[in-house]
Computed example of a mutant assay.
Amino acid sequence: MKIVVIGGSGLIGSKLVSRLETAGHEAVAASPNSGVNTLTGEGLAEALAGAEVVVDVANSPSFEDAAVLAFFETSSRNVLAAEAGAGVRHHVALSVVGTERLADSGYMRAKVAQETLIRASGMPYTILHSTQFFEFLGGIAHSAAAGEAIHLSTALFQPIAANDVADALAAIVVAPPTNGTIEVAGPTAFRMDALVRCYLEATGDARGVVGEADALYFGAKIDDISLMPSAGARIGATDYDTWFAGR
Rank of each mutant, 00 (worst) to 15 (best):
T74W: 13
R77T: 07
R77M: 00
L80Y: 00
L80R: 03
A81Y: 01
A82G: 04
E83N: 05
E83L: 01
E83T: 03
G87H: 09
G87K: 08
R89G: 13
R89W: 01
R89T: 14
H90V: 03
H90L: 05
H90P: 05
H90S: 05
H91M: 11
V92S: 10
V92Q: 11
A93E: 02
A93S: 08
L94P: 11
L94A: 13
S95M: 04
V96C: 10
V96Y: 12
V96F: 13
V97D: 02
G98H: 06
T99G: 02
L102M: 15
L102N: 10
A103D: 12
D104I: 01
S105Y: 02
Y107N: 00
K111G: 06
K111C: 05
V112N: 07
V112A: 04
E115G: 05
T116W: 00
T116N: 04
I118W: 05
R119F: 00
G122V: 06
G122R: 03
P124C: 09
Y125S: 08
Y125V: 11
T126P: 12
T126Y: 05
T126R: 03
L128P: 13
S130V: 10
S130A: 15
S130K: 10
T131L: 03
T131Y: 04
T131R: 04
Q132I: 07
Q132G: 10
Q132T: 07
F134W: 13
F136S: 14
F136P: 03
G138Q: 02
G138T: 02
G139W: 02
I140V: 15
A141R: 01
H142S: 09
A144S: 15
A144T: 12
E148C: 00
I150H: 08
L152Q: 10
L152G: 10
T154C: 07
T154R: 04
T154H: 03
L156I: 00
L156W: 13
F157T: 04
F157D: 02
Q158A: 04
P159Y: 09
I160M: 03
I160K: 03
A161S: 15
A161H: 09
A162G: 14
A162M: 09
N163T: 12
D164R: 01
A166W: 03
A166Y: 01
A166T: 08
L169Q: 08
L169D: 06
L169A: 12
A170N: 05
A171H: 11
A171Q: 14
I172M: 09
V173F: 01
V173T: 07
V173K: 00
V173E: 08
V174T: 15
P176K: 00
T178K: 14
T178L: 14
T178E: 13
N179C: 12
N179V: 11
T181C: 07
T181Y: 08
I182H: 00
A185C: 14
P187A: 04
P187K: 04
T188K: 08
F190E: 04
F190S: 06
F190Q: 09
F190D: 06
R191L: 02
R191K: 14
M192C: 05
M192Q: 12
M192A: 04
A194D: 15
R197M: 12
R197D: 14
C198A: 15
Y199P: 06
Y199D: 13
T203W: 14
G204W: 15
D205G: 15
D205C: 15
R207A: 11
